[in-house]
Computed example of a mutant assay.
Amino acid sequence: MCDFEKCAADVKNLKSRPSDDELLSLYGLYKQATVGDVTGDAPGLLDVKGKAKFNAWTSRKGMSQDDAKAQYCALAKELMAKHN
């Protein structure tokens, strides 16, 4: 298993900013890994950023927290190679 906390910390120190899609993938995986399935109602239509984040998290629904941590670490390592 990966060191999830280390991966989460390393991603914050990337030299260049990942794309919006990459950031949303990280967000969805992080929330699934730390909280589990999404709860609550989706943000309103005018909250574009909130809606995108909610959808990124919802797309991971049903994934185990361990699987989400493993996928987060894999994506983080890919981004570290690409953006450092």
Rank of each mutant, 00 (worst) to 15 (best):
T58F: 09
N84D: 11
A42L: 09
T58R: 11
K53D: 14
A76K: 03
C2S: 15
C73V: 05
K77N: 12
C73S: 02
T39W: 11
D21A: 13
G62D: 10
S25Y: 00
C2D: 11
A56L: 07
Q71H: 06
S25V: 00
S64E: 00
L75A: 09
M63C: 04
D20P: 06
K31E: 01
Y27I: 00
S16L: 12
K49D: 14
G36S: 06
M80T: 11
C7W: 06
L75I: 08
Y27C: 01
G62T: 08
K49S: 13
K6A: 10
N55Y: 13
D3A: 07
Y72T: 00
V48T: 02
D66L: 13
A81C: 10
K15P: 00
E78K: 15
S64P: 01
A70F: 07
A81H: 09
L29W: 02
N55Q: 12
C73W: 02
L45T: 08
D37V: 07
D66Y: 15
N84F: 14
L23R: 06
S59W: 05
A76Q: 01
G50A: 04
A52P: 12
R17E: 10
D10S: 11
M1G: 15
D37A: 10
K15E: 13
A74K: 12
K53E: 12
G62C: 14
D3F: 05
E78L: 14
C7K: 08
C73E: 05
Y72C: 00
G44A: 03
K31Q: 07
L75Y: 14
D66A: 15
G50V: 08
A33K: 00
S19H: 15
M1H: 08
A76I: 07
D37Q: 02
L46C: 14
M80A: 10
T58L: 09
K31W: 08
G44I: 04
D66T: 07
S59F: 09
M80C: 05
G36A: 15
D3R: 11
L46Q: 10
C73T: 03
T39M: 14
K6H: 10
L26Y: 00
T58A: 14
Y27N: 02
D41T: 13
K31I: 02
L46S: 12
S64R: 03
S64M: 03
N84A: 10
M63E: 04
K12A: 06
E78N: 13
G62V: 10
T34N: 00
T39Q: 10
D66W: 08
P43S: 13
W57D: 01
D67V: 14
A42T: 04
V11S: 03
A70G: 15
G40N: 08
D37C: 09
L79W: 15
D41S: 12
A74G: 13
Q65D: 01
Y30F: 08
H83N: 08
L29C: 05
G50P: 03
K12V: 05
L24A: 03
A42K: 13
K77T: 15
R17D: 02
A52T: 03
L79K: 04
L14G: 02
D3C: 09
K31G: 00
M63Y: 07
K15H: 14
L75C: 10
G44M: 03
